[in-house]
Design a protein around this nucleic acid. Structure first.
Lengths: 130, 130
DNA sequence: TGGTGATTTGGCTATATTGCCAACCGTATC
DNA sequence: GATACGGTTGGCAATATAGCCAAATCACCA
């Protein structure tokens, strides 16, 4: 699979134009997930599909705002929508997101623990309750 | 594990303040990964650690720009740094990112295929080789 | 101690994102 | 058809992000 464009050069890999296009496509997915409200929506949709009005109530923002968040997620392929009557139902379309969220959760908790250890290096007997 | 804060209300879950703080922490990680250059850096660091100057050459941007990208990644806990002499080496600190990147890759390819099928609905005999 | 290379940070401009309101569109109901 | 409801889109202001240059640090070496 490796294609050498030139011989006998021990040069480091570069971020060329093609690679950049690929990375931009990936970044679009991360960007779509890079907002607390959208993560909340993904979390909810992992349990069951929801219409915009339900999500709007749960999020507690303007419906137009929620609709735009959903559009971002859909454009990135994270969710899919289905119109049913006068309502539009959204479903999670990229379940592997959940695995990564779980991983991030773990990393964050590890970071918190690390932070606490740094803050109080010798917790003689027991740490304060908070 | 389920804690009911109030009784006898069949209400939908809300994005309360606490939940929002948790989601914001998660979003920070996604935000850190939501840029092609930073994804490139993560990709490179998954193979071996690199100093800023190496990454700068590979990325092809100003060193200050690359340094800032690295700071974003580090602040999110995605990478870690180690000063050695006058150089700073960065390493991947969140390997599970790679799994998700692979998953995104798969989803993107599926989307591309879907797109192609929409473009040419009846590939009579066999699809073009690529 | 002065100088050099590696890295980070301040400052600035350009661009992108977010959120609301208002206006618009499609569907159901009367 | 008129009205109401659910949803999307245009427009705008506030904020955040990205990139570069220049200046400040830091480690090493003469």
């Amino acid at each position: 699979m490796v294609i050498k464009t030139s011989d006998a050069k021990p040069m480091t890999p570069r971020m060329d134009k093609l690679e950049r296009a690929r990375l931009e496509a990936h970044a679009k997915v991360f960007k779509a997930l890079a907002h607390p409200t959208r993560l909340f929506i993904v979390d909810q949709l992992s349990q069951t599909e929801r219409c915009v009005c339900e999500l709007t109530e749960m999020v507690g923002a303007d419906m137009s705002t929620v609709s735009r968040h959903l559009a971002v997620l859909q454009s990135a392929g994270v969710v899919a929508s289905e119109k049913r009557g006068s309502q539009v139902y959204y479903q999670l379309h990229m379940p592997c997101v959940l695995g990564f969220v779980k991983c991030v959760e773990g990393v964050l908790q590890a970071a918190v623990k690390e932070q606490m250890e740094l803050a109080s290096p010798r917790p003689k007997r027991a740490e304060r309750k908070r």
